[in-house]
Amino acid sequence: MASGAAPTLVRLERVGKVFPNGPAIEDLSLSVGEGEVVSLVGPSGCGKSTTLRLIAGLDAPDTGAIVWSGGAAPAMGFVFQDPTLMPWATVEANVALPLRLRGRDRAAMQGEVRSALAALGLADAGGLYPRELSGGMRMRASIARALIERPRLLLMDEPFAALDEMTRFRLNDDLLRLRRDTGATILFVTHSIYEAAYLSDRIVVMSPRPGRAVAEIAVDAPPDREGYRHAPAFMEMCRAVSAALRTAGAEAAA
């Protein structure tokens, strides 16, 4: 699977991963270009999250290879399905965690933490504990933490799945704005066809388990997606993704 015009940041070459209960992904090939937003969509259990974990280095592939431009994996941020905040630490301490683990001086990182919080609309919430936040604010804090080290690649594993529709829309817009501001490459796992169509430059459709990339759909939408949700092109894109998913399911069942 090619990634269009952008220079490739990472390429998965026929990657496979087997768990004790069977293969999760098999012969998965895909690439992500610099500055792209790529969504992985597919049925539950098709290996989308496993793919992110392999790219993050949290698991190792059993077959195939993950090839990085420049040879080594760049700085990465990971946003999990749950906010995974430390409940005993304030929002500020949670966001500062990656810097703290690198041994950065507390005073020196104050500015970076404050600007990360401000970028996610949490400027006044730094002193609160996670339990004092709404679900949307917790996820914003999780994204701020993932962005604090200015990663070249942001991996997001169904980050908005547990949120209500309005919060999800707001966070989708925030993510697009952050992408414009930071230029980060984003690999985004979602169950939502609408979310994938709204956020992505490219959508990779995966087959049912064991997951493979069976279709790739380029999203032809302006970078500023103001009003795109209500455009006929958006609905057309959702229909195309939906049809690709149905085809993938039918082929797997045949």
Binding site: A56, L58, F80, D82, T84, L101
Partner: peptide, 21 residues
């Protein structure tokens, strides 16, 4: 929490950092 353990691994935390923090 497994997610937090993964987060510390991603940040290449030492075992002592993982224990203390």
């Amino acid at each position: 929490d497994r997610g937090l353990v993964d987060l510390f691994r991603l940040s290449r935390a030492t075992r002592m950092q993982e224990l203390v923090h």
